[in-house]
Simulated assay, not measured.
Amino acid sequence: MGIPAWVWFVIAVVAAVAGAALLLRDRSRSNSRDRERRRWAALRGWQFAEADPELVATWNSGAIAYYGKGNAVDVVAGSTFTADGRRRVYVFDLDVNGKRPAVIAAVQLRRKHAVVVELWLPSMPFQREHMPELLGPVGQRYAFVSDMAAARALITPDLVDASEEIGGDVTVVWLESDWVLASAPTNAGPSRLERLLRGIGEVADVLDPFDAETDPVGDQGQQPAE
């Protein structure tokens, strides 16, 4: 005996209601994160934008390569002081096909590096197509690099110590061009992101000591696109 049509109708209605509930929950979380990020930016005197369609194209490695290019949403842009001077910073959610797998924090250096250095937690399934070459353990992380000799020159004991302070909830820290970036979990709030910016700021100071004669970073940093 076949299943009555009304049973299938009930199943369809229940599935539709469940899907709508999940959509509303995700939207509520997104709106809450948006408001929290806005308040944080305002308190710091930084700029906020709901999205910046150009920003993610700045980078190609680390979490960007792992999760996909996507878009930058709930973007905070400004500048902050580190021990070796003032540096431009960005914080944004990486949105890939409507999902947000990570929060990206970035601190800018004053000079570019030709080598990419990715420091991954060993618990992360970090393999991907076109993965940089494995250099080996760096503290509690594994280093994957685009140039062995250049990377070895950069990975000093001070850099290892600074990377160890980043935190075990950050899957990858990476150097790319004139930026140090890190990938935090999506539930990272302003207090955690403040600590993360300080942590990667320390990495930036190791890689790029401050030159007192020049400080090109503006008071507010770049404004994100509206």
Rank of each mutant, 00 (worst) to 15 (best):
F81R: 07
A49S: 14
V73P: 01
I64L: 12
V75D: 01
D52L: 01
W59K: 10
G62V: 01
A72K: 05
Q47A: 15
G62F: 00
R44G: 12
A51H: 11
G70F: 03
Y67I: 09
I64S: 00
A57S: 15
T82R: 03
W46M: 09
E50D: 14
Y66F: 15
G45C: 06
A65R: 14
T80K: 05
V73D: 02
N60T: 11
S61K: 04
S79Q: 00
W46L: 10
S79H: 00
G45E: 02
T82Y: 01
D52M: 03
R44H: 13
W59F: 12
G78T: 01
A65D: 11
Y66T: 09
S61F: 08
V75I: 01
T82C: 01
F48N: 11
V76C: 07
A49I: 11
V73T: 13
T82L: 03
K69I: 14
D52N: 06
D74Q: 12
G70N: 08
V73Q: 06
D74F: 02
A57F: 15
A63C: 01
A57E: 14
Y67Q: 12
A49H: 01
A51I: 11
D52S: 06
A72I: 05
N71A: 11
V76Y: 02
A77T: 10
A65N: 08
A65V: 07
V76P: 00
A72G: 09
G78L: 03
V75K: 02
R44P: 03
E54W: 02
F48I: 11
